[in-house]
Amino acid sequence: MKFSVMVNEGPYTHQASDSAYQFIRAALSAGHEIFRVFFYHDGVNNGTRLTTPPQDDRHIVNRWSELASEHDLDLVVCVAAAQRRGIVDPDEAKRNSKDGDNIAPGFRISGLGQLIEAGIESDRLLVFGD
């Protein structure tokens, strides 16, 4: 089965990021494919590498990056939602004359079309949010 997952809330504020992560891990270990994970609304905050939680807490951003590298996941942050919230990759930083970027490893910034495509290409689309 081919799944896509949408994450609509920021890490550490809402359980959505944790639920999505646990669901994806369970789906992968059951042998399913994850076509794409799409981050929207405040969910784009899952994709900043500047996140620094205390050591005794889970590192939600690193956890995504590690899962992406282990399973070759496609983690896509919506560009429009990301720009509003200050999540930028090197290209966006240059285009908007910012003094730095903050996108975490394994994430890429792209358009909302990636979400629609995920809906079209996947057998199931699950949404985690508020």
Partner: peptide, 20 residues
């Protein structure tokens, strides 16, 4: 159910509505 049961429910049902 656990997360494995969640995944099974997402497979056996042909569509999903997440009431957010």
């Amino acid at each position: 159910v656990g997360y494995d049961g969640f995944v099974d429910l997402a497979c056996t049902n042909d569509k999903i509505q997440n009431w957010l």
